[in-house]
Design a protein around this nucleic acid. Sequence first.
DNA 1: CTGCCGGATCTCGGTCACTGAATCCCCTAA
DNA 2: TTAGGGGATTCAGTGACCGAGATCCGGCAG
Lengths: 417, 417
Amino acid sequence: MTEIRQPTPRRGTNLPRMGDFNLTVILDAIRRTSGGLSRVELAQIVGLSPQTISNISRRLLDQHLIVEAGKEGTGPGKPRTILRLNPSGMYAIGVHLDPAVITFVVLDLVGDVVKHSRMATPAGSDPATVITTIADEIKILIQDSGVDPAKVAGLGVAVPGPIDLDEGSVVDPPLLQGWNRVRIREALAQATGMETLVDKDVTSAAVAETWAGGQSGTGSFIFMYMGTGIGCGIVLNDEVIRGTSGNAGEIGHIIVDPGGPQCDCGLRGCVKSSCIPVVVVAEAEAAGILDGNRNSTEGPDVQEYFARLCDAADAGDEKAIAILDRSAVLVGRAAAVVTNTLDVERVVFGGPFWGRMSKYFLQRVPGIIEENSAARRIHSIEVVGTGVGEDVGAIGAACLVLEHTLAPRAQRLLLEG
Amino acid sequence: MTEIRQPTPRRGTNLPRMGDFNLTVILDAIRRTSGGLSRVELAQIVGLSPQTISNISRRLLDQHLIVEAGKEGTGPGKPRTILRLNPSGMYAIGVHLDPAVITFVVLDLVGDVVKHSRMATPAGSDPATVITTIADEIKILIQDSGVDPAKVAGLGVAVPGPIDLDEGSVVDPPLLQGWNRVRIREALAQATGMETLVDKDVTSAAVAETWAGGQSGTGSFIFMYMGTGIGCGIVLNDEVIRGTSGNAGEIGHIIVDPGGPQCDCGLRGCVKSSCIPVVVVAEAEAAGILDGNRNSTEGPDVQEYFARLCDAADAGDEKAIAILDRSAVLVGRAAAVVTNTLDVERVVFGGPFWGRMSKYFLQRVPGIIEENSAARRIHSIEVVGTGVGEDVGAIGAACLVLEHTLAPRAQRLLLEG
DNA sequence: CTGCCGGATCTCGGTCACTGAATCCCCTAA
DNA sequence: TTAGGGGATTCAGTGACCGAGATCCGGCAG
């Protein structure tokens, strides 16, 4: 279908790369410890000598990425100087282009939202117009946020898959008509003048978790993104897995309900035909829990109806509870397939639909995953809901920039070609 | 179920680590180019300066890991000196502990088998006795091979999962009775005096592919291991994925046949209940292709019956062909689930049963994977059979040692705790 | 046969990140 | 007030990579 990808040869590394990498390692360690860290603690954690830590801290202080935040002394000896991230040391813009709604955020260095906005996705407009609209909104957003534009490191864009990572393009996503092979990266980079990164929404969500998710964003986990569709983001040993073309995490055709409804792939009971919100809502309608007047199968509508289903369940409607419970079981099975394949230590749930369903899912999914875990004799698998709210997509998009600039990715060490 | 794994903090790197890493990078580049490489070409490929390449080449020559192998000059100028791997620069021992048979190999640096042997797995013996037997056989093997023991870098052991990588133990595999939490790594290290590594057989097979598989062992791929069970090894960007506890690649409960037979997990049509060899053989018996006198469901027997089924198919028996064809479709679906989850560029098939089935699988699987690929608009997925023969398990086990010692793993750069 | 030329490789000094040892600094406790 | 302990910094040292230039090794024209 496309050109053959020649294997990227493995490259060497050199002194400057090493320096940069160690800098990001230290920043990462500071970032991941809520209370901040002293220089000695850092030396302990990252394994470098105290002198090196001192030097690197100085560089970080000079760049205003960290600040000295008080002292901490118990017992004799000079008290430790605590180093903490400087929230206003850097900012990133994130845009989530969803078929229904476009979300914008300005994120600071610690991952807090400084400013945010939304607009309905213009229906029927051609991509070029939409892109211009996005670029305009970004400019306004930066202005309104009062953030120094010089401190904005770049722009991240989360889009529904499939994508082509090399091209930075969206490749004909099911719900965005006319968006076939639109090179949104180039277009937005040009329109905004910012360095721009594009990634899939589910991958972005996983990155959001690593950056703004606290303890549950460390180590190896999958992020189950509950949106209009269901996908997963993958993080192994603190590094995001993107796949050859950036399309990792497509789990829509994992079969979870052998006796379930027919799917367009010809088989029965795939995730996308048995437990995504549209289907769940339809089931609820069929069961008479919701009135059947829904006039579209698109995002906002579905989300509203889904909320009503959850309301019914919250109010004690047995049938509603059963439907949600069953969808939790099915999604749990899909997650188990992935955890068994990758042997991760945690499953994090999130996404626009997560908030309402969390109660039912958290009751059911851990058991399903535990039962089905091939490694259950060796370690348990934690199941948690994300702390990052409904805007994970956009926040993750912004985190793409932070991750690219500041995360200690092994890739950063290697020389470029 | 067990202790909580605290997140490994990300560590820094330093000068010596960098040097070692670059050395492995260069060795890797040489290893992966069949004809050898000159110093200038190396500089080009790995991105280091010619001087550095010279220095590192000298170190490699001193260690006898590479040799200068002739010159190559077209046109004017000094001809290039070709650097090639020195096969006898290092050796590794590999053992594959299979429920039916134990395989031993001595491997040289280029991944060629120098010496190999096998024995039936002693049935009913306790693990300690088996381990002693293995250690003895290893000593004999090294002696017989005539290899300088000082050049043997270590011992790799491939075992059926699940395993506990931290402990280096086998955790109650279905077909090895009495092998629950047996710390085989320690035991064999002590008995042989060699540095010992333990890993799952499917992971080892994937490592074998990266080391001895040529072009198809590069980049990102999954290795579908067709043994008594079916599992997969995962390699992303030239690095093997092991998972938190070393148990990645468990795909036995992926559902591939919604209308299929009941599985012990309560659902229908899982891989392990619908397309592993035992099941296929049983189907063939039911269809009257094989006589039903099989007296065990264990390895050697199954393999023999499976071979007969293939014979029948080769001879043109339509029913036999249909059965193999169908199993190919099912396995293909499982592979597609994994390729969609990880977005890899290649699927490599192998394992003890592969040789006989390859013809039927290679006809069917590529189409199944292509059809089901979520990224088919972006890139195609190559499907190939491994060049590494029936002994992949043992060869892979030996490759674990080579990989651990000589592969440019990012992990190598990081300081230890 | 000789000198010239181009390309590969090596030699030598320079740079820079990390490290070991020693020093400076700051606070607690007697 | 003083001793002492631990944190952070300074200073010189190491070693890997890099730039410039020298050296080596053929082929080719004269």
